[in-house]
Write a protein that binds this DNA or RNA. Structure first.
Length: 494
RNA sequence: GGCGCAUUCGUCUAGCUGGCCUAGGACACCUCCCUCUCAAGGAGGAGAUCGAGGGUUCGAAUCCCUCAUGCGCUACCA
C-alpha cells in the first residue's frame, strides 16, 4: 500500500453517545490518515433499527468536531462514495447478499429465534464446545424452501462458512493470526427486516469505499476471520488490519457507562480541554518514546506510527488526565484562558450574580486561579466570592488556631481602619499595611492573614490574600470585614 | 465450555535486532524546601526479581516451551 493511498475510516453505530474508547479509535484513524497524507472517512453504521438512539449521530459528529478530528468524506460533506449512512445503502447489501446465495456462498435460513435459542440452551447443557448455529437450513432443497416460505416465514441469509481448513490473516499490530474454520459459525448476513448485519455491511462498504486499513478495537479480532472469508467469497482483496488495544475501566473490564463519565462530551462539560483529551488519548495505547507525556497535535501527526501502538489494553486513569489538564491550563495565556473559562463562569456561578459577566474582571480572577485549577469548572467553583456581594460561611472558620472572638474582632476592627485609609488598594500597599498591622498587634502574620482570608473569601483556601483583596476591591473588602465584626459581636464568644 | 489476544512499578508506559537494565520516565503516594492558606515549583523517597516454572546462552525483561491469570468474542448488536 503506497503511503499516499491510505484511506481509513471511523465507523461508529449510533446506538449511544461515543465514549472515550470509541473516540480513541477515531483519533488513531485520524492520526494515521493525517500522518500518511491519506483520507479519514466517517461512515455511520446504522443497521440496527432497534438500538438506534435519537441524537446519537449529532453527538458523534459533535465529539469529532470538539477534538478537531475533521473528516474528508462522510456525513454533512459527502464524498465520492456517497451515501455514508448504511441505512441508505440497503439495496447494495441486498444485491451482494443475493449474489452470494446465487453462487453458493450463502443460503436462506428459516429458523425462528425460538428454535435458535432452544438450540443454544441444549448445546450449553450438553457442554458442547462449539456453540454455534447448527446449520439446520444449510442444505434445504428448493421444495422445502418454498414450503417454508408459504408459511409466511421471512428468511435471513447466512454465510456458508467452509466446514474445515483454516483462515489466517495478518494483523499489523499482532502479527499472523489463525483460526480453524470449524470454529466459525454460519453468520447471518442479511436480517429478516432486510437490513444487513455489521459483518456484511462493513465489508461491502470497506471494499466499495476503497478502505486501505481497518483500524478498530481489539474486540473485533475474533470476527476478522469471518470477514476475511467473506472477502474471499466475493473475490475481493481484504484491507490491512490493525486491531487496537482496548481501553479498560479501573476494574479492568471493557469501558462502559458503569465506569462513570465515559461519554467524550462529558469531559468537555467537566472542564477538560480538547487538546488535553487529544494528547491523553493518543498516549493511551501509543507512545513516542520513554519520556514524552505532553505532546501537541502537530507532533502527534508528525510522529504517529502503527509500529508504536501497544498490544496491551490500557486502564483509563482519570488522575493523570486531571494532572495533564491542570498542566495545560497553567501553560495557557491568561487572556486566552479567560475566554475559554468564561462560559463555565456564566453557567456555574450562583444565579444571583448578574450576567453577562465582565470579561476583564473574569480575566483578573482567572489569572489568580490559574495555577490552582485542574479543570475549567474549578474556576467558577472556587471563585464565587469574587462575584458575590455578601458571603456566607460557618462562623467558626473565624476562630481557627486558638483565635478568640474578642481578639478576632479587635484585629478586624483595626484592619477596617487601615483598609479605609490606605491610599492605594493594591498588592504592595495592602501587604505593607497589613504586615505592619500584624506586628503592631503582635499577632503572627499567618494568623492575621488567615483570618482575613476567611473574612474576604469565606474559605480557608484561596489565592494569595493581597492579590485577592485587590481584585475584590476596597468597598467589598471593607463590607466583609465589618460584617464579620458584626457577626462576632452578635453572640458572645466563649 | 470453545476460540482468540494479552501479561514490565497501583496506573500509563520505555526497553523486547540478548550484555549500556543493580529496569528509565510520567501520574498517584510519602518526606523536605519555598510559603499568608491552597496550589504551583524545587529536591528527595518508596514502588516492578519484568505473571509462574522450565529451558537456550558466558549472559535474558528481551529467544523457545509449558502452565496460570486477565480480557475479548462466542446475537437476525455493533
Amino acid at each position: 500500500m503506497s503511503i499516499g493511498n491510505v484511506r481509513v475510516r471511523y465507523a461508529p453505530s449510533p446506538t449511544g453517545y461515543p465514549h472515550i474508547g470509541n473516540i480513541r479509535t477515531a483519533l488513531f484513524n485520524w492520526l494515521f490518515a493525517r500522518h500518511s497524507g491519506g483520507k479519514f472517512i466517517v461512515r455511520i453504521e446504522d443497521t440496527d433499527q432497534s438500538r438506534k438512539v435519537e441524537g446519537a449521530v449529532e453527538q458523534i459528529l459533535e465529539s469529532l468536531r470538539w477534538l478537531g478530528l475533521d473528516w474528508d468524506e462522510g456525513p454533512e460533506i459527502g464524498g465520492a462514495f456517497v451515501p455514508y449512512f448504511q441505512s441508505e445503502r440497503l439495496d447494495l447489501y441486498r444485491g451482494y447478499a443475493e449474489q452470494l446465495v446465487q453462487n453458493g456462498h450463502a443460503y436462506r435460513c428459516y429458523c425462528s429465534s425460538e428454535r435458535l435459542a432452544q438450540m443454544r440452551t441444549e448445546m450449553a447443557e450438553r457442554k458442547e464446545s462449539v456453540r454455534t448455529y447448527d446449520r439446520h437450513c444449510r442444505d434445504l432443497s428448493a421444495g422445502e424452501q418454498s414450503k417454508l416460505r408459504a408459511q409466511g416465514i421471512v428468511p435471513v441469509i447466512r454465510f456458508k462458512v467452509p466446514l474445515d481448513g483454516q483462515t489466517t490473516f495478518h494483523d499489523l499490530i499482532r502479527g499472523d493470526i489463525t483460526f480453524d474454520n470449524a470454529e466459525l459459525d454460519d453468520l447471518v448476513l442479511l436480517k429478516s427486516d432486510g437490513y444487513p448485519t455489521y459483518h456484511l455491511a462493513n465489508i461491502v462498504d470497506d471494499h466499495s469505499m476503497e478502505i486501505s486499513h481497518v483500524m478498530r478495537a481489539d474486540e473485533w479480532l475474533s470476527s476478522t476471520p469471518r470477514h476475511v472469508l467473506l472477502y474471499a467469497a466475493f473475490g475481493w482483496t481484504p484491507p490491512l488490519y490493525a486491531h487496537l488495544p482496548m481501553i479498560l475501566g479501573p476494574d479492568k473490564s471493557k469501558l462502559s457507562k458503569r465506569h462513570g463519565a465515559t461519554a467524550l462530551l462529558d469531559y468537555r462539560d467537566e472542564g477538560y480541554l480538547p487538546e488535553v483529551i487529544f494528547n491523553f488519548l493518543a498516549l493511551l495505547g501509543w507512545s513516542l518514546d520513554d519520556k514524552t507525556d505532553v505532546i501537541g497535535r502537530e507532533d502527534l501527526v508528525k510522529h504517529f506510527s502503527l509500529e508504536r501502538i501497544s498490544r496491551t489494553a490500557a486502564v483509563f486513569d482519570i488522575k493523570k488526565l486531571q494532572w495533564m489538564n491542570g498542566f495545560y491550563i497553567r501553560q495557557l495565556d491568561p487572556a486566552r484562558l479567560a475566554e475559554r473559562a468564561l462560559p463555565y463562569f456564566e453557567k456555574q456561578l450562583p444565579s444571583e450574580v448578574k450576567r453577562p459577566l465582565d470579561v476583564g474582571y473574569v480575566s483578573q480572577v482567572v489569572t489568580l486561579q490559574q495555577e490552582r485549577a485542574k479543570t475549567l469548572c474549578e474556576f467558577p467553583q472556587n471563585s464565587a466570592f469574587f462575584f458575590m456581594e455578601d458571603l456566607e460561611y460557618p462562623k467558626d472558620l473565624l476562630l481557627k488556631g486558638g483565635m478568640t472572638g474578642e481578639k478576632a474582632r479587635e484585629l478586624l476592627s483595626a484592619t477596617a481602619l487601615r483598609l479605609d485609609s490606605v491610599t492605594a488598594f493594591d498588592v504592595t500597599s495592602l501587604e505593607s499595611v497589613l504586615r505592619s498591622l500584624a506586628e503592631q498587634m503582635s499577632v503572627k502574620t499567618g494568623d492575621l492573614f488567615g483570618l482575613l482570608r476567611v473574612v474576604v473569601t469565606g474559605r480557608t483556601a484561596a489565592p494569595p490574600l493581597f492579590e485577592t483583596m485587590a481584585v475584590v476591591g476596597r468597598e467589598r473588602c471593607l463590607k466583609r470585614v465589618r460584617a464579620a465584626v458584626q457577626r462576632l459581636s452578635d453572640s458572645p464568644t466563649r
